[in-house]
Amino acid sequence: MLEVLYSEATGELELSGTRQDLRLLGRLLSAPAGTCDLAENREPAPYDRSLARISFREDPAGGAAAIVAEGTVLRISGGRDALDLLAADIEDFAEESELSHHLHVDFPTCDFIASGSDPLVVAFLR
């Protein structure tokens, strides 16, 4: 199962899961909208808290993908092209990376991510 941790001080998010979980999330993001429940981490250090759900939706008007933590939900929205790029990055990471590696998905590093998005690190569960 996936988990998402959030740092109050930096606004940084860590999305982690097994290879299979991350591949499934990438495929899930190809739908127009959906949700995914997350595992709760009761000891999220060095982060402050664990989120409960990912909610995503395609914006028919297009545009870059916005990634924002709101309360206990990680909200992802954007145009189809941006969501497909995000999904591909997550799936490629899951397929090709070593277990000790991580992936940064943030603005301006990724031009398909909207400015104002929370910085996201994708990693394998430890």
Score class of each variant (00 low, 15 high):
residue 88 A to R: 14
residue 18 T to M: 03
residue 26 G to S: 11
residue 41 N to I: 13
residue 111 D to E: 14
residue 29 L to N: 06
residue 97 S to C: 12
residue 47 Y to F: 15
residue 21 D to L: 02
residue 32 P to G: 02
residue 96 E to L: 14
residue 80 R to Q: 14
residue 16 S to D: 07
residue 17 G to S: 07
residue 24 L to K: 11
residue 38 L to K: 03
residue 15 L to T: 07
residue 126 R to A: 13
residue 23 R to Y: 04
residue 58 E to L: 14
residue 110 C to R: 15
residue 52 A to Y: 00
residue 25 L to S: 00
residue 52 A to H: 07
residue 90 I to N: 00
residue 20 Q to N: 13
residue 103 L to C: 04
residue 2 L to A: 06
residue 11 G to S: 10
residue 119 P to M: 11
residue 19 R to H: 02
residue 7 S to A: 15
residue 97 S to Y: 04
residue 103 L to A: 08
residue 87 A to Y: 02
residue 49 R to D: 00
residue 113 I to Q: 04
residue 8 E to A: 07
residue 10 T to A: 12
residue 21 D to M: 04
residue 23 R to G: 00
residue 120 L to I: 09
residue 19 R to G: 09
residue 31 A to H: 14
residue 38 L to P: 00
residue 27 R to T: 08
residue 27 R to Y: 10
residue 120 L to V: 09
residue 42 R to G: 00
residue 76 I to H: 01
residue 111 D to V: 11
residue 33 A to Q: 14
residue 120 L to W: 06
residue 17 G to C: 04
residue 65 A to M: 10
residue 44 P to H: 08
residue 68 V to Q: 14
residue 42 R to W: 02
residue 21 D to C: 02
residue 22 L to W: 02
residue 98 E to V: 03
residue 36 C to D: 00
residue 93 F to L: 04
residue 65 A to H: 04
residue 82 A to L: 06
residue 63 G to C: 08
residue 112 F to Q: 02
residue 110 C to N: 15
residue 69 A to Y: 06
residue 103 L to P: 01
residue 40 E to F: 08
residue 126 R to P: 15
residue 25 L to M: 05
residue 119 P to F: 12
residue 18 T to E: 10
residue 63 G to E: 07
residue 69 A to K: 03
residue 57 R to D: 08
residue 48 D to C: 06
residue 54 I to D: 00
residue 12 E to R: 15
residue 42 R to I: 05
residue 82 A to T: 07
residue 31 A to I: 01
residue 51 L to F: 01
residue 29 L to D: 05
residue 29 L to M: 10
residue 38 L to D: 03
residue 21 D to P: 03
residue 62 G to P: 03
residue 108 P to I: 06
residue 104 H to W: 10
residue 122 V to T: 08
residue 34 G to D: 03
residue 40 E to N: 10
residue 12 E to F: 12
residue 37 D to I: 01
residue 77 S to I: 01
residue 77 S to G: 12
residue 119 P to K: 12
residue 54 I to E: 05
residue 110 C to W: 02
residue 51 L to D: 02
residue 42 R to F: 08
residue 96 E to A: 08
residue 121 V to P: 00
residue 88 A to L: 14
residue 27 R to W: 05
residue 5 L to N: 08
residue 109 T to C: 01
residue 106 D to R: 13
residue 125 L to P: 01
residue 125 L to D: 13
residue 61 A to K: 12
residue 112 F to P: 04
residue 64 A to N: 12
residue 123 A to F: 05
residue 108 P to W: 05
residue 23 R to S: 11
residue 7 S to F: 04
residue 93 F to D: 02
residue 73 V to W: 00
residue 51 L to I: 05
residue 45 A to F: 14
residue 91 E to S: 13
residue 60 P to M: 09
residue 116 G to T: 03
residue 71 G to I: 09
residue 69 A to D: 01
residue 37 D to H: 11
residue 62 G to I: 03
residue 69 A to H: 04
residue 108 P to T: 05
residue 22 L to Y: 02
residue 55 S to W: 10
residue 119 P to T: 10
residue 3 E to A: 15
residue 1 M to Y: 04
residue 17 G to E: 05
residue 29 L to V: 09
residue 5 L to A: 10
